[in-house]
Nucleic acid binder design. Structure first.
Length: 550
DNA sequence: TTGCAGTCAATATC
DNA sequence: GATATTGACTGCAA
């Protein structure tokens, strides 16, 4: 009754008493997703933040409800508001239990029934997919996602990978039966999870599913069963097809089964996949360095020069920007987690994403790419892009989507083409920052170019699109010729944003948030970054090119 | 219209 | 055979 009244006739804030405001605060928290922090427990994270947050808020309101909060009192009697403490916390708790409880793998679960005959992986993730939560009314994944508190995507993927590998379970099986995604998507997701706050509702879905799956004590067995059944079905089909020479047969389990055998869809409708030649990629990367957001005209030119379809060029830029962004996210996370790894619960800390981490916290991609051979140049690059460094910094904010959402610059997400340029320290651009030796061939490692630091905006600005195109053009022909592809851009960006993404992400429990143990490497990088910043500043003030060597 | 997130699915690589 | 990479596509938002 109180709720009804409150929802239908809310009183203006100013008219509310401290107590009367409480329900609204709760509602706001709930709307913000802060309420329910315990729904999907993030390892190590105590449930109940809700109350804490409320409590703190209350504190600020100087009210005594705090006690009521933590003290599940028999609110019934209390004023309309009091009811919330209990009810909310309880509801949250129940939900939490729900998710924590063993629950069948999403769509499979049900009585060990085979993985959805139709299991059209694609459809699966559709909104309605109910999460069969044992004993409770099924909640749709969307509901769970909406109610879910911030999850440690990195930690979740690490755990999932561990479980999968430990039990010899494949990504395909896991993806199709648990996540409703294809193998490629799963691989990508597990290898490059984006921080929770960077994910859209849809993007969070797989993580919630993974979390739910991880919470299911029988997850492995179920998946194993699935595997067995699949195998059985496969063998069966195989036999039947062999004997009946009946190649195809609508797979009952909706899994890819020998596609090779099914001749039916011979329809030449499938257009061959475009595979860009290394030189083409190189050229595109160069162009990207020049101009991360090329104009239609530039794209046109690039397409012409590279003899590609404009759509291909467009797609390439989209994909490249997007992927680089993700790389950066990861670097950041890794950089952050690195220090806390030890503390982190699971062994995953070390193993997970081992690869990248191994490459050195963060700048990995680059370093790895460059390889040991990385000469001074490489080093420079690496350093420059360094996670903590430009790369990170940049990405964090400058980069195309850098700090988007969470951080002030909202539009950042869609850094208009100009954005970048503009953002880029326009100023210093002038004196074309001595082009950072673009490890022409090597740098490739996507991550390197550091999207964030759409390089040489200056150049861009000045040279305009031509620069880009020309750069691109040039490369194909002579990839090696680094064509003074000005790349220095990143540095300036970094300078402007010394801030660590970590803070940006503000991943509470996420790896990134933990005490970033400053290991020697990090310190060194930090020093490097400072040096870069310093030089940039000097350069900016001097307006004269300087020799870049970090 | 443009950019992006999320995916798929073909293909590469391990 | 499993996993990683990547060009293309869809849907959404600004």
């Amino acid at each position: 009754g109180s709720v009804s009244d409150m929802l239908s006739r809310p009183k203006p804030w100013s008219k509310l008493t401290q107590k009367g405001r409480e329900p609204f605060i709760r509602m706001q928290l709930w709307l913000n997703g802060e309420l329910g922090q315990g729904v999907l427990p993030v390892q190590g994270q105590p449930q109940g933040p809700v109350l804490h947050s409320v409590t703190s808020l209350q504190d600020s309101l100087q009210q005594g409800c705090v006690s009521s909060e933590s003290t599940p009192k028999t609110s019934a009697s209390c004023s309309p508001a009091p009811e919330s403490p209990m009810s909310s916390s309880e509801s949250v708790k129940s939900l939490t239990e729900l998710v924590q409880q063993p629950c069948p793998p999403i769509e499979t679960g049900k009585d060990g029934k085979p993985p959805e005959p139709s299991d059209p992986p694609t459809l699966d993730s559709q909104p309605t997919t109910p999460l069969p939560l044992s004993g409770h009314s099924a909640l749709s994944i969307q509901e769970l996602v909406a109610m879910s508190p911030e999850l440690d995507t990195y930690g979740i993927t690490k755990r999932v990978k561990e479980v999968l590998t430990d039990n010899n379970l494949g990504q395909r099986l896991f993806g199709e039966t648990i996540l409703g995604l294809t193998q490629g998507s799963v691989s990508d997701l597990l290898a490059r999870p984006k921080p929770w706050h960077k994910l859209s509702l849809k993007g969070r879905e797989p993580f919630v599913r993974m979390q739910v799956w991880l919470n299911d004590p029988n997850n492995v067995e179920k998946l194993m069963d699935m595997k067995r059944m699949e195998k059985k079905a496969y063998m069966k089909r195989r036999h039947s097809s062999v004997s009946d020479s009946q190649p195809c047969e609508p797979p009952s389990v909706g899994i890819d089964y020998s596609q090779g055998a099914s001749p039916q869809p011979q329809h030449q409708l499938k257009k061959p996949r475009v595979v860009l030649a290394p030189e083409e990629k190189e050229a595109l990367k160069r162009a990207y360095q020049q101009k991360p957001y090329p104009s239609p005209k530039t794209i046109e030119e690039l397409a012409t020069q590279l003899n590609l379809k404009t759509s291909t060029v467009i797609n390439w830029f989209h994909n490249y920007r997007s992927r680089i962004r993700r790389e950066l996210f990861i670097e950041e996370i890794q950089a952050g987690s690195q220090g806390q790894a030890a503390a982190s619960d699971s062994p995953s800390a070390r193993s997970g994403r081992a690869a990248p981490s191994s490459e050195g916290d963060s700048c990995d991609g680059v370093e790895a790419a460059e390889g040991p051979g990385a000469t001074a140049t490489a080093t420079a690059t690496a350093d420059a892009e360094e996670p903590g460094g430009p790369a990170a910094a940049t990405k964090s904010q400058g980069g195309p989507g850098a700090a988007e959402r969470e951080e002030g610059p909202p539009p950042a997400g869609t850094p208009g083409p100009d954005d970048t340029g503009a953002a880029e320290d326009a100023g210093r651009a002038e004196p074309p920052p001595p082009p950072l030796p673009l490890e022409s061939p090597a740098e490739r490692l996507a991550p390197v170019p550091n999207p964030a630091a759409p390089v040489a905006p200056a150049a861009t600005a000045a040279a305009g699109e031509d620069a880009a195109t020309s750069a691109a053009a040039g490369s194909p022909a002579s990839p090696g010729t680094s064509t003074g592809t000005s790349t220095g851009g990143s540095a300036p960006a970094a300078a402007r944003r010394p801030r660590s993404l970590q803070s940006l992400f503000g991943l509470p429990e996420a790896a990134g948030a933990r005490d970033p143990h400053d290991n020697p490497v990090r310190k060194k990088k930090a020093a490097n970054l400072n040096s870069i910043i310093h030089r940039l500043e000097k350069a900016a003030s001097r307006e004269e090119p300087i020799e870049w060597e970090f």
